[in-house]
Write a protein that binds this DNA or RNA. Structure first.
Lengths: 199, 199
DNA sequence: AGCTTCACTTGACATAGTGTCAATTTACAC
DNA sequence: GTGTAAATTGACACTATGTCAAGTGAAGCT
């Protein structure tokens, strides 16, 4: 009964994921997704109320398949604040390319679609919390720059480690993924840590 | 004869500018612009072939009114590379809020419109050249970090000083404009300059 | 076998916004 | 007055999303 319904749902999500990844998040229509999933366009609406909800479900599906939870959990186990920050940047930075297509599509529709905007805000709030935990660990260790409050440091990480910035470095400037991650770690260290440029 | 035609054209550009600034670049339709300019929607197409060209013309119009050329020229007069970089970041950083609405609208349509994409690419290329001149001055002064090539340093400035990042700091995180500019200057200095964190 | 139910199909339609076209109107210039 | 250029009006094509109603087909129940 419902096992086949779930199958179709997953097929739709995978179709959306694949198409959006290939097109870098633009130009993918509901009819394209339906065709790729092997069903009619209208049938997609039997599983998702609209495009925004489909894309939101796709991000959650990717999170599940790619095990974000486990990846981010690793950063929580670091003993020092500095290690924790580096691990978190590495985990998040390497996760961006996995969700890029779908997030880009959500980003493109956020102006016209309240649900897309809300979903992105929610995701970004989750990211902020991750950065906040790392910054608090730095503060606890006494290595956070005295010129910065915790919220300010979080703002800096959150603003600079955006999907848009990743896009500029890796897609527009052609930087390899590993180089991007290394630069972001260096950036975080230079901007957030106290004293004579540690790391 | 053509003096009145020019007037209408300018009225359209100002209407687009005002509306896009007020709405932060989203939800402004051709009919809204026409109404604000006091003409019919169809008449807009007598002056601009399509929405993308109108927005592109609007950015050029803003450049003209706000005298970008003169502002950026000032940074060229600085004697040291460091001063030049700081002046350029200040000029560009303070220019972003002026064009924000229109650029945001162009950004939103770049996926579906080749003309919009080309116009943005062109603008971004101009920005790169400004950063490149500043970075070359740093290299000439021998203060550019030995770990970075000129193109890499330019990539870093260009990627981090994007309109999208400005948006995150000032609009999403609520930072005052001056604080944003100061942070970007600090960032550039810490990431690009050689030796024990100068400036 | 007969009946229901559920997932899906087909085709038609509403809506929004962009861009096009043709037929007029208005106004000014000579 | 007549011509010309700018603008108006109304109609229409196109694209993509989302809705609706009627119908098909296969599995499951009794």
């Amino acid at each position: 009964m419902s096992s086949e319904a779930v199958e179709t749902r997953i097929r739709i999500l995978n179709a959306a994921w694949t198409l959006l990844e290939a097109s870098h998040g633009s130009g993918v229509k509901m009819s394209d997704i339906a065709r790729a999933a092997g069903i009619s366009r209208q049938a997609v609406y039997l599983h998702f109320p609209n495009r925004a909800e489909l894309l939101i479900a796709a991000t959650r599906h990717i999170d599940e398949v790619k095990k974000v939870g486990a990846r981010l959990a690793a950063s929580r186990e670091a003993s020092t604040g500095i290690e924790r920050l580096e691990a978190f940047i590495e985990a998040w930075g390497n996760y961006i390319p996995e969700v890029y297509g779908v997030v880009r599509a959500l980003l493109a529709m956020r102006d016209s679609d309240a649900a897309a905007r809300a979903a992105l805000d929610d995701r970004m709030r989750g990211l902020r919390e991750g950065f906040e935990a790392a910054v608090k660990a730095l503060a606890r260790d006494g290595v956070l720059s005295p010129a910065l409050s915790v919220p300010e440091a979080v703002d800096i990480l959150w603003s600079l480690l955006s999907v848009e910035t990743w896009e500029k470095f890796t897609r527009d400037c052609g930087w390899p993924q590993a180089r991007y991650v290394a630069l972001m770690q260096e950036l975080a260290s230079k901007m957030l840590l106290a004293g004579p440029a540690s790391q």
